[in-house]
Design a protein around this nucleic acid. Structure first.
Length: 417
RNA sequence: GGAGGAGUGCCCGAGUGGCUAAAGGGGACGGGCUGUAAACCCGUUGGCUAUGCCUACGUUGGUUCGAAUCCAACCUCCUCCA
C-alpha cells in the first residue's frame, strides 16, 4: 500500500504525520534522488520545549533514520521578534539573556532523538541569530522587502486573527514572517536545505520561505506540515495535570511525564503509539484493538516507550514502578516528586494548606482550603476535612516521609531535612 | 488630523452610581460513576497572619458618604471621513 517511493514519506504517511505539503510528488522524487536536508525551527520562548514539539522532533528523527539530514534551527534571532502565529496578543519581549538561557535549556533534548556530528546525514544545530542580527535594515528592505506585499501579508491567518480580535500587532511582529522566510533562504544557501517542516500553524510562515527561495534562488524547495494534535475528545494535547507538559526533567518530573501518557484517552492510544514511539505498525494495530480495561496495558506500553525515548529506559522503568506502587498498591513510592521541609518546622507543625501550596499541589492557601472543603485532599491516603489541620512529624510514615495527595493522581512526598 | 463606538476576572461575555469579588458560558481543578480513559452528573474557581483586611473592571487623576458604572487626560482597538 506504499503510496510513495521514498521511505521517509511512507513512514510519515503511515504514522499520521502529514497534514499538508507544497508538492508531494516532487518532494518524493527529491528524497529518492539523494540526501535531503530539512529544517525545523524552534522558538526560544521558554526554558524547555513541551509536548507540542515532540511530533516535530519525532519527524526529524524519522528523517534521519531514513537517510536524510536534519537541521535543528534555534530561533535565537526570531524569538527577539516574537512569532505572532496563534498569539491573540503581543507577548512581552524577552531579553537576550533570557533567550540565551532558554536556548541552553531547549538544546539538551535533541541529543536524545538525533545523532549530531559532521557526517552527511548527521544532524546540525544552528542559531538564526547568527545571520539575522547581522542584517542591515535598508539593505534587507531592498533585497527582500520587495518580494513581500502588504496585501498578501494581511491575508495571513496570524495577522487576521489579531486584527479581528482588535488587538494591536506591532510592526516588529508583522516582520516575523519575513525573518522566517529569510531563514529558509539562508539555510538553502548554507546547507542546501530544501525542506522545511513544522506544525500546521506554521504553514503560512513556511510557504513564505518557499516563495522567497523560488524568487531569490530560483530553486524549488518544499514545505511539509504536521496536523495539529488534539485528543479524541477535542482537547488540546497535554492540557490536563495543570500546566504545560515540559520535556525537560527539571520542569516536569519523569513520573509526571509518564503519567501524562498513561492517562491517554482510549481513542488516542493508536494514534499516539504511531506518532511518538518506534513500535512497528503491526504491533500497534494489535494493541489498538484491545478493548476496555485491557487497553490500559497498551497505555502503559505507550508511557514506557515514550518516556524511554526522552529520559532513558532506566528512568522510565522507575516511573512505571512508582506508578504501579502508587496506584495498584496505594503506597507512598519513592519515585514520586518530593519536597524537603525543615525538620524543626515539622516538629512544630505546618498548617495543611501551607504545606500543599509549598508542594505546588495547590496554587494558594485559599485554593488549598477550598480543595479540603471539596474533599480532594489526602494526607497519607486519608482524606482530611479540617482546613486547620496541622501536619507534624507525627504524620511521618515508617519510611520517614509524608504523602500529600490532591485528587487521585497527584502526589508529593514531604521529607524532613 | 476629524466624527462616532469600544477596552470587564484564565478566555468569551453581562453589568452603566450602593444589593458587585462582579450574571452566564467556556476552560481549569475537585467529587461521583469507571478502567489512573472518554461521556455524563455535582461542587469549586482573586489574595491574606481571615467573623476582618487587601487587590481587581485599559492607564492616571478627579467628582461623590459611596464608582466597573459619572468627569478629565492619556494609551490601544474598531467604523466612517480626510
Amino acid at each position: 500500500m506504499a503510496q510513495y517511493r521514498s521511505e521517509f514519506l511512507n513512514t510519515l504517511e503511515e504514522r499520521g504525520f502529514i497534514h499538508q505539503c507544497t508538492d508531494m510528488e516532487a518532494l518524493d522524487a527529491a528524497l529518492m534522488k539523494g540526501i535531503v536536508t530539512a529544517y525545523i525551527g524552534y522558538d526560544c520562548t521558554a526554558p524547555s520545549l513541551h509536548i507540542g514539539h515532540l511530533i516535530q522532533i519525532m519527524m526529524q528523527r524519522h528523517l534521519q533514520k531514513s537517510g536524510h539530514k536534519p537541521i535543528v534551527l534555534m530561533g535565537g534571532g526570531t524569538t527577539k521578534v516574537g512569532d505572532p502565529t496563534d498569539k491573540d496578543k503581543s507577548r512581552p519581549l524577552l531579553s537576550n539573556e533570557q533567550i540565551n538561557a532558554n536556548m541552553d535549556g531547549i538544546r539538551t533534548v535533541f541529543a536524545r532523538f538525533l545523532t549530531f556530528g559532521e557526517g552527511p546525514t548527521d544532524a546540525v544545530m544552528v542559531n538564526n541569530d547568527d545571520w539575522l542580527s547581522e542584517l542591515g535594515y535598508l539593505e534587507f528592505l531592498r533585497d527582500y522587502g520587495t518580494h513581500f506585499t502588504i496585501n498578501r501579508m494581511l491575508t495571513f491567518e496570524s495577522v487576521k486573527l489579531r486584527l479581528s480580535r482588535e488587538e494591536p500587532m506591532t510592526f516588529l511582529e508583522f516582520n516575523y514572517m519575513l525573518m522566517q522566510a529569510y531563514d529558509y533562504h539562508n539555510l538553502l544557501g548554507r546547507f542546501g536545505c530544501t525542506l522545511q517542516m513544522g506544525g500546521s500553524d506554521q504553514w503560512g510562515n513556511i510557504i513564505n520561505g518557499v516563495e522567497l527561495c523560488r524568487r531569490k534562488d530560483e530553486t524549488q524547495v518544499f514545505g511539509l506540515t504536521t496536523p495539529l494534535l488534539s485528543t479524541a475528545s477535542g482537547q488540546k494535547m497535554g492540557k490536563s495535570m495543570g500546566g504545560a507538559i515540559w520535556l525537560n526533567a527539571d520542569m516536569l518530573s519523569v513520573y509526571d511525564y509518564w503519567q501524562m501518557w498513561r492517562n491517554t484517552e482510549d481513542a488516542d492510544v493508536g494514534k499516539f503509539l504511531k506518532l511518538f514511539t518506534n513500535m512497528p505498525l503491526d504491533e500497534i494495530a494489535r494493541l489498538e484493538a484491545l478493548q476496555g480495561q485491557e487497553l490500559n496495558e497498551a497505555k502503559k506500553l505507550l508511557a514506557n516507550e515514550v518516556t524511554t525515548l526522552l529520559h532513558g529506559a532506566e528512568a522510565a522503568a522507575t516511573a512505571a514502578e512508582t506508578a504501579r506502587q502508587a496506584f495498584e498498591q496505594g503506597m507512598a513510592a519513592e519515585g514520586l516528586p518530593t519536597i524537603e521541609v525543615s525538620a524543626a518546622k515539622l516538629e512544630v507543625g505546618i498548617p495543611a494548606p501551607e504545606l500543599f501550596t509549598a508542594a505546588e499541589l495547590t496554587k494558594s492557601n485559599g485554593d488549598a482550603r477550598r480543595q479540603i472543603k471539596g474533599g480532594g485532599v489526602r494526607v497519607n491516603d486519608k482524606v482530611i476535612s479540617d482546613e486547620k489541620r496541622q501536619i507534624t512529624s507525627k504524620d511521618l510514615d515508617e519510611d520517614g516521609v509524608i504523602k500529600l495527595s490532591l485528587g487521585k493522581k497527584r502526589h508529593v512526598l514531604v521529607k524532613p531535612v
